[in-house]
C-alpha cells in the first residue's frame, strides 16, 4: 500500500517536474526497460542467486558446527567471539575489493563475502537459542539418565529453532546484499556488476531495474524462510489456536 503510493508519487514527479530520465526515470520506464532487458537481467541474476545460496550454505554449516563446539566448550566462546565481532565491523566497501583482488573474479570471493556477513548473526542466534533451553527440561533429562549429547539433541537443539529462524530471516537479507557488493567489486556477471555497468552507461533505469530484481530476490528468499519455519515448527501455529476443548479439569 505505502509502496504503491510512493510509486505513484514518484511517477507523477518524474513525468511532470521536467527532470531528465537519465537522472530519475519514472517507475513505468524502469518497468518497461526491465521487460525489454529481461534476458540480461535473468542472465545476471543467476550468478547472484548462486553466490548467495552457496555462500549462505557455507556460513550456515560453519555456524552450526561451531555453535555446537561453543556450546560444549564454554571457554571457546570467550576466545572466539571477539574475532567474530571484529569481523562484523569490517566495512564491506573496503573488504570486497580486497577479497576480489586476492581470490579473483570467480565464485570464491563472492561466497566468502556472503559467508562473512551472514556467519556471525547465525552463530549468535544458535548459541543464544541453546541457552534459551528451559532449565527444568535439562534437569529432568539428566535424572532420566541422559548424557550431555542426548540433552543437546533432545532439548537444546529444538529449543534453538525459533532463534535459528529469526537469525535466518535477518541473515538472508544480508546475504543478497553481500553477494551484490562482491560483484560490484569485480565480477564477470551478476546483478552487482550489471548495476555498475548500467550506472557507467548513464542508465539509471537499468540500475533501478536490477535493484528491483534484487529486492524481489530478497523477498522471495525471506518468504522461503517463513515457509520453512512453518513446516519445521508446526507446534508454533498449533499453540496459537484456541486450546482443545477436552475433558474437564
Amino acid at each position: 500500500m505505502s509502496v504503491g503510493l510512493l510509486l505513484v508519487a514518484w511517477e507523477l514527479y518524474a513525468n511532470h517536474s521536467g527532470i531528465k530520465p537519465t537522472v530519475l526515470p519514472a517507475p513505468s520506464r524502469v518497468f518497461e526497460q526491465a521487460i525489454l532487458n529481461r534476458e540480461a537481467l535473468v542472465d545476471n541474476a543467476i550468478p547472484t542467486i548462486r553466490a548467495t545460496l552457496l555462500g549462505f550454505a557455507c556460513s550456515l554449516s560453519a555456524a552450526f558446527a561451531l555453535s555446537i563446539l561453543v556450546d560444549f566448550f564454554r571457554p571457546l566462546r570467550r576466545a572466539l567471539f571477539p574475532v567474530f565481532i571484529v569481523s562484523q565491523t569490517l566495512p564491506l566497501v573496503a573488504i570486497a575489493p580486497l577479497v576480489v583482488l586476492w581470490f579473483g573474479f570467480g565464485l570464491a570471493p563472492k561466497i566468502m563475502l556472503v559467508a562473512l556477513v551472514t556467519f556471525f548473526p547465525m552463530l549468535v542466534a544458535l548459541v543464544q537459542g541453546y541457552e534459551a533451553t528451559e532449565v527444568e527440561i535439562g534437569q529432568m533429562l539428566r535424572t532420566m539418565g541422559a548424557g550431555r549429547w542426548r540433552v543437546f539433541v533432545l532439548a537444546r537443539l529444538p529449543s534453538a529453532l525459533p532463534y535459528f529462524f529469526a537469525g535466518l530471516r535477518i541473515s538472508i537479507t544480508y546475504a543478497v546484499v553481500g553477494a551484490i557488493f562482491a560483484e560490484y567489486a569485480g565480477a564477470a556477471k551478476g546483478l552487482g556488476i550489471y548495476m555498475l555497468n548500467a550506472k557507467n552507461n548513464f542508465r539509471p533505469d537499468l540500475v533501478l531495474a536490477a535493484v528491483a530484481v534484487s529486492a524481489g530476490l530478497t523477498l522471495g528468499l525471506f518468504g522461503l524462510t517463513v515457509l520453512l519455519q512453518r513446516i519445521a515448527m508446526p507446534w508454533e501455529r498449533a499453540g496459537r489456536e484456541p486450546p482443545g476443548t477436552g475433558p474437564r479439569e
Binding site: E134, E136, I137, Q139, M140, L141, T143, M144, G145, A146, R150, L154, A155, P158, L161, M233, W235, G239
Partner: peptide
C-alpha cells in the same frame, strides 16, 4: 528415581504422546 519438576517441563515441540515417552526413549 523418576523426577517431576515444578513446572511441567513438557517439550513444546513434542506431541503429548512423545512427551510422555521421553523417559523411556532416554532409557
Amino acid at each position: 528415581f523418576a523426577f517431576m519438576p515444578q513446572r511441567d517441563a513438557l517439550m513444546p515441540w513434542r506431541r503429548i504422546i512423545d512427551n510422555t515417552t521421553l523417559g523411556l526413549e532416554v532409557q
